[in-house]
């Protein structure tokens, strides 16, 4: 199956001479449809650089980034912006909702920017809000919602219009344990329904929701963990 996201031998160098820092060094990485991949690593390991490159916010020094088979290096700024609008959704730690817009308007915004009529955009936003289970807060403003609800709105915004790549940067960082878990469950459900997700986190408990966990250190992938098989788990071996 074609990867939704594919980084091929990507290097990203910041600065020159004495201040030269290689944030990523020859990293290859894929996220396929239906897959949630977590990226873990200490500060400065290259997690954010990887996410920025994956979303077309930054360009690699060498190597290539492909989203749904399209090589971003072959696109100009406007072309990359189009790919971001149509294929990539972002979820941030601090939600990044526009305070003056309601939940539905926040979710509809990317569709309107992409040329949908206000009515079409609203309809798609309502579908996305229903999928994250909070259609009832559609007409509320961000400050009238809980943190968990705001993050669900942000997830709805990231997938509205059938975008298939969700890039999540510490999406549960500002939430308590239980609410964070609900948000991960929503993210997981979208991946189960066919999206590809990349979850950057420093919390192993959150990475536990992923199909694969990629460990970064000093700009390199040092290891990768996949869930042990269904029969590898003691709880599933029992005679319940």
């Amino acid at each position: 199956m074609t990867a939704v996201l594919h980084l091929d031998n990507v290097t990203r160098v910041h600065g020159e001479g004495a201040t030269r820092v290689a944030a990523l060094r020859g990293v290859s990485f894929t996220a396929r449809p239906g897959e949630l991949v977590a990226v873990m690593g200490p500060s400065g390991s290259g997690k954010s650089t990887l996410l920025n490159l994956a979303g077309g916010l930054d360009t690699p020094t060498s190597g290539s980034v492909l989203i749904e088979g399209v090589d971003l290096s072959g696109l100009d700024v406007a072309g990359r912006a189009r790919v971001r609008r149509t294929s990539v959704g972002y979820v941030f730690q601090d939600y990044n909702l526009i305070p003056a817009l309601t939940a539905a308007e926040n979710v509809a915004l990317p569709r309107e920017l992409d040329g949908d009529s206000r009515k079409e955009a609203r309809e798609k936003a309502m579908i996305a809000l229903e999928r994250v289970g909070i259609a009832e807060v559609a007409d509320r403003f961000p400050d009238e919602m809980s943190g968990g609800q705001q993050q669900r709105v942000a997830i709805a915004r990231s997938v509205v219009g059938e975008r298939r790549l969700i890039l999540a940067d510490e999406p549960t960082g500002a939430l308590d344990t239980e609410t964070g878990e609900e948000v991960l469950r929503v993210l997981r459900d979208f991946c189960d329904a066919g999206a590809a997700g990349v979850l950057v986190t420093h919390e192993a408990r959150h990475a536990g929701w992923a199909d694969r966990v990629v460990f970064l250190r000093d700009g390199l992938v040092v290891d990768e963990a996949a869930a042990s098989g269904a029969y590898g788990d003691p709880l599933e071996q029992g005679a319940l």
Binding site: A207, W209, V213, F215, D223, A225, S228, D233
Partner: peptide, 15 residues
């Protein structure tokens, strides 16, 4: 060890 423990954590989450 971290990889092995992470795999176990993923399996518990899945269960």
């Amino acid at each position: 060890q971290r990889t092995a423990t992470m795999s176990a954590l993923q399996a518990h989450t899945r269960t």
